[in-house]
């Protein structure tokens, strides 16, 4: 990447619900490792990915690990820029006020700017 992208945050887009395969967990792993490497990281929850933020998520009934403990660790890794797609959130009857983590709501028309401001972008 050219030098002008070096200061941009790395963006991980999470589009899968907890226990919908290992997408969410493996996406979060990329965010944690990038942060451990000293990169600024932005997380964007979209589509079913917003379910990751729903209060009361636990381990899966089939023995899958829960992802809330990982989300609790984000602050420790200095990952504090959480964005959530407003439309996806509303479609699922959720609001940012009830989420256990401070996430900023992003309107559909603001999404392109969020993605354009980041490099690289990883989509899970």
């Amino acid at each position: 990447m050219s030098d002008d992208t070096a200061d941009m945050p790395l963006l991980v887009i999470l589009r899968h619900a907890p226990h919908d395969g290992s997408w969410l967990r493996e996406g979060l792993d990329v965010a944690l490792v990038a942060a451990a490497f000293g990169r600024a990281v932005t997380l964007l929850f979209m589509g079913d990915g917003v379910e990751a933020l729903r209060p009361g998520q636990t381990a899966g009934p089939l023995g899958q690990k829960g992802t809330h403990p990982t989300l609790d660790m984000l602050a420790m890794y200095d990952i504090e820029d959480l964005r959530v797609d407003a439309t996806s959130l509303a479609e699922r009857g959720l609001s940012t006020a009830e989420l256990p983590w401070p996430a900023r709501s992003v309107a559909a028309e603001e999404l392109p700017a969020v993605i354009a401001a980041a490099s690289p972008v990883f989509n899970f």
Binding site: M1, S2, T5, A6, L10, D29, V30, V33, A34, A36, F37, R39, S119, P120, F122, N123
Partner: peptide, 16 residues
């Protein structure tokens, strides 16, 4: 995974 993050930084293009 660190090498994935690094690839995103050191290459001109990263395509998923």
């Amino acid at each position: 995974i660190g090498q994935l993050v690094e690839a995103g930084i050191t290459h001109d293009r990263l395509v998923t």
